[in-house]
Design a protein around this nucleic acid. Structure first.
Length: 462
DNA sequence: GGAACTCGCCAC
DNA sequence: AAACGTGGCGAGTTCC
């Protein structure tokens, strides 16, 4: 083991040494925030919260809770809420927490259909934005700049982490939250924010490990795997982008990626049913669930003989078996042999030369080397870009990293050069450095107008 | 009064 | 056989 490690230790060490220096520069650069905007938004949100709180405090629901409680009720205490809902009111918890208590998360509260709880969820969402993001930025900013930290020593997969404030979990999917929070983040005066992110980086890096020929074809041709899987899951005769876009999203998020991470059909079925199709976990009737084209999704399923949740589950079991058994059998076999080798040796190396040791589950052992190496590709590019920006005496700066994406603050006169440089580094140069990367790499870009906040990001064709 | 815990939620 | 991975962080709570 010592010898195997020694062959790679210097490469791995050098990457993190150089990476630490490059990330330290990004930290030093930081990102501009509008203190004025944050204070204003923070106040607005406080106001909204106070108003919504009074709706709850004036309700029968709350008065009853306070009567039941021995001490002053704190609505934000999950423990008190759990007691009131599931012990006092004897409501049935949708699910349990890890330690066996009735859950009070969003999903659990939403399905109780209590107006006050809907208001409560609305408050919690606003509080999250204010406490974690707005207040966090304000606390961390100095002279109108935040300087998120980027570390390389905390994550067991050898990814990076970020803190004070965390640059890697800024709201994005929820449009309203995105606008509220990213509206506080700005480029330097007369600069513009540019984000370059790899498409499907982990899927592409996994190829270097498993070498599955079908996956290779998908990645080389750019054929749409998620479309193909959506056709299977939803029994479509033909995929129509105008009608079935949502279904493609669903199969991508709740089946394909879940499968790659090691999930299995029962979880996928549940997630697809409740979160995507909005169908019950029981028998399905005509006119239920989300609308697809000119009909409800339950009708689509019923037409194909899937008339209940139970039938959908076994339908997905078949698709899972087909997915691994027929579509990606080589990938499947790699998982098994990789897992066996780890069980035999007690360790493994990533393609990037990092040593993984310790107790790992089967999913851990197959996920970690991919997740780590994918990040290392990004990190190598970040180091290269830092050096080249310096070498060419450019004014544009790297300000952060989000696992498979680099965020830059770009001087507009350099925009074309920066984009060309990043494309060259991230799609070509890194493949020269690491010839084990055996599929094309692709990046996509998002750009904000000059002086506009991060909320103004738009797709930018490159 | 701080450390360590649970729970929940944001990102990839 | 097993049953999706990695973080940071806030509030509430409990322990010492």
């Amino acid at each position: 083991m010592t010898n195997i490690y020694a062959e790679h230790i210097l490469d791995a060490y050098q990457l993190f040494h150089d990476g630490t220096l490059a990330l330290a520069e990004a930290e030093q650069q930081g990102m501009r925030v509008s203190v004025e905007y944050i204070k204003k938004k923070s106040k607005q949100i406080d106001h909204k919260i106070t108003k919504l709180e009074s709706v709850i405090y004036d309700s029968e629901f709350f008065r009853n809770w306070q009567n039941y409680s021995k001490s002053k009720v704190n609505i934000y205490s999950p423990k008190q809420l759990e007691m009131y809902l599931y012990t006092c009111l004897k409501l049935k918890a949708k699910k349990q927490t890890k330690s066996g208590h009735g859950s009070t998360d969003e999903e659990s509260l939403a399905q109780l259909n209590i107006a006050e709880l809907d208001t409560f969820l609305e408050i919690k969402k606003l509080k999250k934005l204010k406490d974690t993001y707005l207040d966090g930025f304000l606390r961390e900013q100095i002279d109108g700049f935040i300087h998120p930290f980027f570390t390389l020593h905390l994550v067991k997969t050898y990814r990076g982490a970020s803190s004070n404030p965390n640059f890697q979990n800024i709201p994005k999917r929820d449009k309203e939250s995105m606008k509220t929070i990213r509206g506080a983040l700005f480029p330097r005066i007369d600069y513009q924010l540019l984000e370059l992110d790899y498409s499907q980086l982990e899927v592409r890096i996994a190829q270097a490990y498993h070498n599955d020929p079908t996956m290779l074809e998908y990645l080389e041709t750019g054929h749409d795997m998620h479309k193909d899987i959506a056709v299977q899951i939803f029994c479509l005769k033909e995929y129509d982008a105008t009608i079935h876009k949502e279904l493609r999203q669903a199969s991508k998020g709740a089946f394909v990626f879940a499968q790659f991470y090691g999930d299995y059909y029962k979880n996928c079925a549940k997630n697809l049913t409740t979160n995507w199709c909005k169908l019950p976990e029981s028998k399905w009737k005509s006119g239920q669930g989300i609308i697809v084209g000119d009909e409800h999704i339950s009708d689509l399923f019923i037409r194909s003989g899937i008339t209940s949740y139970a039938k959908f589950e076994s339908h997905l079991e078949k698709i899972e078996n087909d997915f691994w058994g027929n579509r990606f059998p080589i990938y499947d076999r790699w998982k098994e042999t990789w897992w066996r080798a780890y069980q035999r040796d007690g360790y493994f190396l990533s393609k990037t030369g990092f040593l993984f040791t310790g107790v790992m589950s089967r999913n851990d052992a197959t996920n970690y080397p991919v997740q780590g190496a994918a990040f290392h590709v990004l990190l190598w590019c970040l180091i290269q870009a830092t050096n080249e920006l310096k070498e060419y005496k450019m004014k544009s700066k790297i300000v952060g990293q989000i696992h498979d994406a680099i965020v830059m603050d770009v001087c507009p006169t350099e925009l074309d050069d920066v984009v060309a440089m990043m494309k060259r580094i991230m799609e070509k140069k890194v493949r020269k450095h690491w010839s084990w990367i055996n599929v094309p790499l692709k990046i996509e870009a998002e750009l904000c107008p000059v002086n506009a906040s991060w909320a103004e990001k738009q797709e930018y064709k490159i």
